[in-house]
């Protein structure tokens, strides 16, 4: 897709305060020695995000997008770093899009409320904000600039945030393995992990994806036990009518609160619920999926509600 003119082009020189626009969060040109801004910060508000990142905008909007700014920094040797800052509706949204974008890639870095970096980009979230900094190469000078520019943004964001309540519980180490956890707030993000069908079967508003490699465990959170039971029954009925899934009516453990099936690729699926939580384990053998589902259900029961 093409680039469009930005909705607002903000002058760095005018960015003396943070309130009102995003440019105040961006490093000043030359603040990181040797690195200057190519153009003013370009800001995109609400629906106009698609002008900046095209189809990537949908998932941001699903999480709760407010506005974004971007600016390129270069050095004299032609190295380049693109800085993007996303203001989300709340810290949960920022945490969510952070986990969606990283998905276990790279390694942890101590930055903001959480950060990860690979050899050419850094993501971190702090309060309602997500920062993404991308180098055009993996040279040491570019990597250093990534760190310095990220630190300059981080110190400007004075607010802080906490991950959603269950995040720690979902990411617990199991058999020596810590899963990559993604917090989701709708079916668009969900569809990037597994296609449960053409329709929005789970009517997902809030959930988690824990990726253990061979088995991926999904947790959907409802407001009440009744709502969760209703969602569970709807899912069971919908899957039963979908020819791409084969229900195992007599599978071990099948009950009012658990059913088993397999998909057309032969992956096992175990769907179970407890209280306000519905758990779906996908992948591996049926035994592995059952074990993953049981383990997650046990941890959720410990968490209360």
């Amino acid at each position: 897709m093409r680039f469009f003119a930005p909705v607002v082009a903000l002058s760095i020189a005018a960015a003396t305060t943070i309130a009102g626009d995003l440019s105040g969060y961006f490093p000043r040109s030359g603040e990181t020695p040797g690195w200057t801004a190519v153009d003013p910060v370009m800001e995109y508000i609400g629906d106009d995000l698609f002008r900046m990142i095209d189809g990537g905008a949908e998932v941001y909007r699903e999480y709760g997008f407010v506005r974004a700014g971007s600016q390129e920094f270069v050095d004299d040797a032609g190295h380049s770093v693109m800085v993007e800052l996303y203001e989300m509706s709340d810290p949960g949204a920022a945490y969510g899009i952070f986990t969606f974008k990283t998905r276990g890639e790279g390694r942890d870095v101590q930055m903001g409320n959480g950060g990860r970096r690979t050899d050419y980009y850094i993501n971190f979230w702090k309060g309602r904000y997500l920062a993404t900094l991308t180098g055009t190469d993996t040279m040491s000078v570019t990597k250093a600039a990534l760190n310095n520019l990220a630190a300059a943004i981080e110190k400007r964001i004075t607010e802080s945030g906490e991950p959603p309540r269950l995040a720690g519980k979902i990411s617990s180490v199991v058999d020596g393995q810590r899963p990559a956890v993604t917090y989701i707030r709708g079916p668009i993000a969900l569809s990037n992990f597994y296609r449960f069908g053409a329709s929005d079967i789970f009517a997902c508003k809030e959930g988690y994806v824990a990726d253990y490699g061979k088995v991926t465990t999904f947790v959907f959170v409802d407001d009440s036990d009744a709502a969760c039971r209703s969602r569970f029954e709807t899912a069971r009925t919908t899957f039963a009518g979908d020819s791409t899934f084969a229900m195992d009516e007599k599978g071990p453990g099948t009950s009012d609160e658990r059913f088993l099936m397999s998909d057309r690729r032969g992956k096992s699926l175990v769907c179970a619920r407890t209280g306000i939580y519905m758990v779906v384990a996908v992948g591996g053998s049926e035994t592995a999926a059952q074990t993953a589902a049981d383990g997650m259900l046990a941890r959720l029961r410990q968490s209360g509600k």
Partner: peptide, 10 residues
Amino acid sequence: LTNGPFGPGK
């Protein structure tokens, strides 16, 4: 493989 179409990603 992830974070398309804009990136960065895997």
